[in-house]
């Protein structure tokens, strides 16, 4: 079984579960998906769809778990297409580059407007404060504040420090997510 997917074992066999991995470009999403979540999944199972110019969704399906990844920010004209992917989402893994203090404000705006989507109301939120290996990386409390997470009053969320390239912190994060999803099975 592929890497971190072993944590999701208890969920296999239940209904299809959709997990979105989102964040600004360069945050580390692709690294997390390929290197950490599914290193042993056959290449053939990794599908990249481009339903329209400029919109690129990376997708990994393993048993009944579906992971979908795309970059937030940038062109506003493609945003309506995001909606197609929001329905029946069980969890959002939101990845931020903790060392990029310049763009954390944009990342916050993207997160806030995404969470306003009705379709995502019931989704569990995991925030990965990624690139903790870089000097000057923001602490958990700093990320919490910069993303304005204290405004979330009706959603369970949890922040984890990670380094996708070193593979650190992802175990704990995925284990927590799998447990949180077990409640929703």
């Amino acid at each position: 079984m592929g890497g971190l997917l072993s944590y999701f074992k208890s969920l296999f066999g239940s209904r299809e579960m959709r997990i979105l991995i989102l964040g600004l470009d360069g945050a580390g999403k692709t690294t997390i998906l390929y290197r950490q979540v599914s290193p042993e999944i056959l290449v053939g199972e990794v599908v990249t769809t481009i339903p329209t110019i400029g919109f690129n969704v990376e997708q990994v399906t393993y048993k009944n778990l579906k992971f979908q990844v795309w970059d937030l920010g940038g062109q506003t004209s493609i945003r309506p297409y995001w909606r197609c992917y929001y329905s029946n989402t069980d969890a959002v893994i939101y990845v931020v580059d903790s060392a990029d203090r310049d763009r954390i404000g944009i990342s916050k705006q993207e997160l806030v407007s995404m969470l306003e989507e009705e379709e995502l109301r019931g989704a569990v939120l995991v925030v990965l404060a990624n690139k903790q290996d870089l000097s000057g990386a923001m602490s958990v409390a700093e990320v919490h504040q910069a993303l304005g997470l204290d405004a979330l009053r009706a959603r369970t969320f949890q922040i984890f420090k990670t380094s996708a390239t070193k593979g650190e912190g992802l175990d704990t994060a995925m284990e927590w997510l799998a447990n949180a999803l077990t409640n929703k099975k």
């Binding site: 949890q158 922040i159 704990t172 447990n179 077990t182």
Partner: peptide, 17 residues
């Protein structure tokens, strides 16, 4: 309610509702 077994509860860094 499907409770989380106590041994699966981990330190909170965020919010549980």
């Amino acid at each position: 309610y499907k409770a989380l077994p106590p041994n699966k509860v981990t330190a909170t860094v965020g919010l549980n509702i």
